[in-house]
Design a protein around this nucleic acid. Structure first.
Lengths: 331, 331
DNA sequence: CTGTTAGCGCCTTCAA
DNA sequence: TTGAAGGCGCTAACAG
């Protein structure tokens, strides 16, 4: 079974089955146009020979390749793999092959990849694109194109709203008695960081909590650990970190000073990248990246079918996942 | 710039430049066959029109697609993203597009993916393949094929030898005073698991350590946590886990029981998937997955060029990364 | 150096 | 329902 062979074409199958080449073609693409028995005969002959239709020839003739491309800034950033996987699985259900591109956070590289893919795909997904609005629009004019976490008017997009989860986090902290918290910010230019910081500010205002901002130059374990000094001098009793990695760093810095979590200090991460796989397990904001990947691919499929370029803006809200860095086991 | 257009072929470029279609083709694929000025003229005409060669047509005619495929069991398994990224970057240097496949740990699915890709790629890489030797050999007969972490004779392969790092781990534990350790095993059918278990056994024998094997049904945080009971009854004072996730689970289970790490019990992980980003940071065995991805792609490139099917077996050794779950900060 | 001429393997009108 | 023929866009001999 599945003994594919080289250089095997419809021609040999046609001869073996005693039909014309066009019938062989139809037996695979439009069996309803042929009598059931002819289809059967052809399929059997094909099977016996180990014939497999040549995708490339098919694509050249129809313009349909059955391929899509997904480009991300960094495959190794733990935020993306689940998203990639979800998109993959969804593509699989439609028998599509997916090209993966790694832009390395570089607009030039991303542009190059799009160009390289565009000739052999029916559509693309750009996740957290680093491209300018203009370039995105230019590419979208050529092929169906869906954006993830990038808000360009007129281009179908899937947005993860971390604001909703962050607001829940603030409410949760208020509820368990915190009156003064700090937000440990990430990259200042990041869209997500701005969104999160603003959400913390607004929610804290509404609930009458005092909030300070502490900057962690970059989003990393070490940055979080080093920020602990600044965090503690504010007098706050809990911190919401830009992401989980930073939060883990804060946990380490706290442990260095013998401060117990969650009894003496509460910590909340963002993106739920570690799951429950740390100890103590991190209270964090869910990321919905799986849904985002799946939704983006579904959207792309729709786009590919009906060329109508509707202006879709699909927003996924997030929620707080309470684990053990804000409330102890017993409560 | 880069204003690609649909339905633009060599024909229009040929007319615009006043040459034959074959010259246009040559201007792009073999400029050295044309006079420099002709090349220039053609290229300018192409540029002005926004012409981009059609990859599909080219592939049909030459049999070369410029695509490769990489199939992994689970994109979201943190072991793979760095590997994928490395392969990607390497492919990029040769202007290759890479298809990514997720077999979902399922041989059938993997076989399906290979079949779907095989028609439009020049070669494939199978990472931790779940396929039978026979299927792998069948596929390798059709196209250049490189294996990662799978040892099939006659098929070029890149192997990460966790054995060397595991031996270092055992030596390290012996050196800091442990006399009785346990290996917490992962999936029994896994090649890596067998390799690691054997390495522990052998190294322990050589050093005169007592070693017990405790099975964690699957490799996961929860499995590790639940294994702690069985671990403790053996009387061992340290554990080497199949992977980092399991090790984290063990850490959690130990903490549940108030057992301090590393003072009362030592823990070593495998694969260095978390980096130093946990607290206490995990002593573990490096994974070399980046090198593996890069090497696999280089190997594939060689294979694709010289059809000589040499029996390459490229082994990457690993090393122990000592952090804080075996030795405290002070030492 | 450059033009002419066949295909690559398949799909798809158009007739029969 | 089936066959014949042309073409998708490009490359690769073969001439000139």
């Amino acid at each position: 079974m599945n003994g594919q062979k080289e250089g095997l074409t419809i021609k040999q199958v046609a001869e073996a089955a005693g039909v014309a080449r066009s019938s062989v073609s139809r037996a695979f693409t439009r069996p309803e146009m042929l009598s059931p028995e002819t289809v059967k005969r052809i399929r059997e002959a094909a099977e016996k020979l180990g014939y497999v239709p040549n995708q490339t020839a098919r694509a050249l003739s129809t313009g349909r390749h059955g391929n899509v491309a997904l480009i991300v800034p960094d495959v190794a950033n733990p935020f993306f793999p689940p998203l990639i996987r979800a998109a993959q699985m969804e593509a699989d259900r439609s028998d599509l092959c997916v090209f993966l591109g790694n832009s390395d956070e570089d607009p030039k590289q991303e542009d190059k990849l799009v160009g390289r893919f565009t000739g052999q795909v029916e559509g693309l997904i750009l996740a957290s694109s680093r491209l300018s609005d203009e370039r995105i629009q230019a590419h979208a004019a050529l092929r169906p194109l869906v954006l993830i976490n990038r808000d360009v008017e007129g281009i179908p997009r899937v947005l993860i709203d971390s604001g909703s989860g962050v607001r829940e986090a603030v409410a949760h902290l208020a509820e368990i008695g915190h009156r003064h918290i700090v937000y440990v910010s990430g990259p200042t230019k990041s869209w997500s960081n701005k969104q999160r910081r603003r959400a913390v500010r607004m929610a804290a205002d509404v609930l009458g909590l005092k909030v300070d901002i502490v900057a962690a130059a970059v989003a990393s374990f070490e940055a979080g650990r080093e920020a602990v000094g600044s965090i503690l001098v504010t007098g706050a009793t809990a911190a919401i970190a830009f992401d989980d990695l930073t939060a883990q760093g804060i946990l380490a810095g706290l442990a260095d000073r013998g401060i117990r979590v969650p009894e003496q200090f509460g910590v909340v991460g963002c993106d739920d990248v570690l799951g429950a796989a740390t100890y103590p397990s991190l209270t964090t904001v869910s990321n919905r990246s799986v849904e985002a990947g799946k939704a983006a691919l579904s959207l792309l499929l729709e786009l590919m079918q009906s060329q109508s370029v509707r202006d879709v803006r699909y927003v996924l809200d997030t929620h707080l996942v309470v684990r053990n860095t804000t409330i102890g086991h017993g409560e």
